[in-house]
Design a binder for these strands. Structure first.
Lengths: 156, 156
DNA sequence: GGTTGATCTAGAGCCGAGTCTAGTTCCTAG
DNA sequence: CTAGGAACTAGACTCGGCTCTAGATCAACC
């Protein structure tokens, strides 16, 4: 029934997850683990595959901007066991909203960025042609900046 | 030819942009303005609409994760005037890549988050039915956590 | 002339999320 | 027995990006 579970050192877990050993200890201090990290002889941390699985979830939640306190809250709920699924659901939904909102903001920003890339592509293309005809570009220094700034603010 | 340009106090700019007056002074110290902020009588900052336009761009770039040093670099290039469009283009393209990568990561994370929301929705639905039949849910405490963790790691 | 309230400067403080250090202990190999 | 490398703890440090404070100045109104 109880399989031989692979047990991993902190170094191995670090390698596998991409977290630093420092970060792993830090996460532990912060109470982000669902199961207390076991200790081997000499007081060394022994991690299970489950720990790595959980860390994988943590990493994804962190990567999507969940702050440590929320992550700790979530770990607390899971540690507590069945019966608090409503709250876990709330927490996850809230995070879901955050992430979609963030994607929305980034996507909006991308409009401006794309626009700017376009502007500079055009300018560079023009420049590479007119540069071999005349050292001064076709627009004066005064003209150069203002129209750019004028358009810059127009995001939509 | 030269229109009467509206000039704004730091407070007005703060209100308009959503940045704090502190942040505005901080941005100035950091060299993020393209045009030196003018000073009125008594040494008070006087902003133009152009400044606000530029700040709007800054805010969008910041919101999309551009770090202050990059933003400063960009401001430097624009301040320098025409002739460095290739570098501006590089900078913007680089940022474009960062933002799309970030959107990608977030979208991926969303898979897990959506999955979890689904799991907890199901559990809550089940629970609200069986809860009025039996205080203990249909799965034992031991069973409860492990399958969740097992699935948790499966992102794809 | 006195009181608000906005602004000024220089610099200190804060928060989140780790990272790094010092000094020690432990395991393994030669 | 010794050297090397990995791990241990507690706590200091870093970094980015502001935010806040103190103490002074200034403009406007009663």
């Amino acid at each position: 029934m109880s399989e031989i579970r692979t047990s991993l050192s902190i170094g191995q877990v670090a390698e596998r997850t991409g977290l630093s050993v420092h970060a792993l200890r830090f996460y532990e201090r912060e109470g982000l683990f669902v199961n207390d990290v076991r200790r081997g002889p000499g007081g060394r941390r022994v991690y299970s595959e489950d720990d790595v699985d959980w860390l994988t979830v943590c990493i994804i939640l962190r990567a999507s901007g969940m702050p440590l306190p929320a992550l700790r809250r979530y770990a607390d709920l899971v540690r507590e066991g069945a019966g608090n699924e409503e709250e876990r659901l709330r927490l996850m939904r809230e995070h879901y909203e955050h992430v979609t909102a963030q994607i929305g903001r980034l996507t909006q920003s991308l409009d401006l960025i794309r626009f700017k890339v376009g502007v500079y592509e055009d300018l560079v293309d023009q420049g590479s042609v007119s540069a071999r005809q005349c050292h001064a570009p076709s627009l004066s220094a005064g003209e150069e900046r203002t129209p750019l700034l004028r358009h810059e603010a127009v995001v939509e």
